[in-house]
């Protein structure tokens, strides 16, 4: 659809949350919790940390939670009985105040879970989530969205995007049909946008540091460049922090939990950085050392995903670098890869 441009007053922002609640829509937004910022249900605008650069974890958990029940069954002498788990029980929800990279991060997940046969657990939840993203007035040294095709005002994946212009006004872009329906809830608060507003003036300046195509090209060619991967990952300690805060990492695990009468099968986040991720029962491990696992993480995002699903599996949010206990800075490493050869 043709996008619509509107203006909203800052002072009316709290009314939006009230109206969403009045319509019965839960609102998920970044909330400050000590040093971390979590995406959680909020009551009012006051709860929302709109000034933070990024939430600690990405917004992926709204459609791909860290623990999700996919099966339930009861056990009896006569055998096992399965009880259907309906993937479609989520309510229509509004994801409010996330950044453009969070919104566009869903396109990787859409590609992975949407590929036939579709994973309804993810798809239904995603379908029921309307995303109101806030463009970024500032960035930090970990951000590199512009290097991977995004940007501080990137509208991909968002249903509505808000950009603060000046002190009192918000520039509203209505981007999708879903966005239009949401905007209708507060249509009376919107005024038509004067022509010629250039939102880029109000956005952070994120420098392009490497050529994403070059990274895609070089990763494929660098598979056997063991020295490169070892050098980059020597200080990697093999935890899963990067994958778990990543908006596009979608690897998962299944685990059963049961007592004597009933049980569930859970789908859990997993990470290719763990040594046990690929370990065969025989003891053989295709990716034995950390440098191979680091290579897998980079290759999967920049070589395999573009080949399989035609998306680059990285949004340049830099969360992995911020969360890394040993300061593995992906922006720096990708820049190095772009310069190989």
């Amino acid at each position: 659809m043709e996008k619509e441009l509107k203006i909203l007053k800052y002072s009316d922002l709290s009314k939006l949350i009230e109206r969403f609640h009045a319509k019965g829509f839960p609102v998920l937004a970044p909330v400050r919790k000590g040093k971390v910022v979590e995406i959680e249900l909020v009551e009012s605008l006051g709860d929302i940390a709109l000034d933070v650069l990024l939430s600690t974890q990405s917004a992926k958990k709204t459609a791909f939670p860290k623990v999700e029940k996919v099966l339930k069954y009861t056990l009896a002498k006569s055998g096992v009985t399965q009880h259907p788990v309906d993937p479609d029980t989520a309510r229509e929800t509004i994801l409010f105040g996330v950044r453009p990279c969070d919104a566009s991060g869903f396109k990787s997940l859409d590609a992975i879970f949407g590929e036939a046969p579709g994973d309804q657990f993810y798809l239904k939840k995603k379908e029921k989530t309307a995303i109101i993203s806030f463009s970024c007035p500032e960035a930090d040294e970990y951000c590199f969205c512009t290097s991977v095709g995004g940007g501080p005002g990137n509208t991909a994946g968002s249903d509505l995007q808000f950009t603060g212009i000046g002190k009192d006004e918000i520039f509203v872009e209505i981007l999708t049909e879903k966005g239009k329906q949401i905007a209708a809830i507060f249509a009376d608060l919107l005024s038509d946008s004067p022509a010629g507003i250039d939102k880029t003036k109000f956005l952070a300046d994120v420098k392009v540091v490497f050529d994403s195509d070059k990274v895609v090209e070089n990763t494929s060619a660098s598979f056997n460049n063991a020295a490169l991967w070892l050098e980059q990952s020597l200080r990697c300690i093999g935890c899963g922090a990067c994958a778990f805060v990543c908006p596009t990492c979608a690897c998962f695990d299944f685990q059963d939990e049961q007592n004597t009468k009933q049980g569930v099968r859970l789908r859990l986040w997993d990470s290719c950085g763990f040594s046990l991720f690929t370990l065969h029962t025989s003891g053989h491990n295709p990716r034995e050392v950390q440098s191979q696992r680091w290579r897998q993480r980079i290759m999967h995002k920049f070589s395999y995903m573009p080949q399989q699903l035609h998306v680059v599996g990285c949004e340049g949010c830099g969360r992995c670098s911020r969360a890394c206990p040993v300061d593995m800075n992906i922006k720096e490493h990708l820049t190095a890869i772009a310069q190989v050869g």
Partner: peptide, 29 residues
């Protein structure tokens, strides 16, 4: 509640060097 089981604590700990942590032992889990 905040924990996402990324095991960064375990990975960062110099004393957590077990080749297979109790958490990863799965017979039984």
């Amino acid at each position: 509640e905040k924990c996402i089981k990324c095991y960064a604590c375990r990975a960062a700990c110099p004393m957590c060097y077990c080749h297979r942590c109790t958490t990863d032992v799965n017979q039984p889990q």
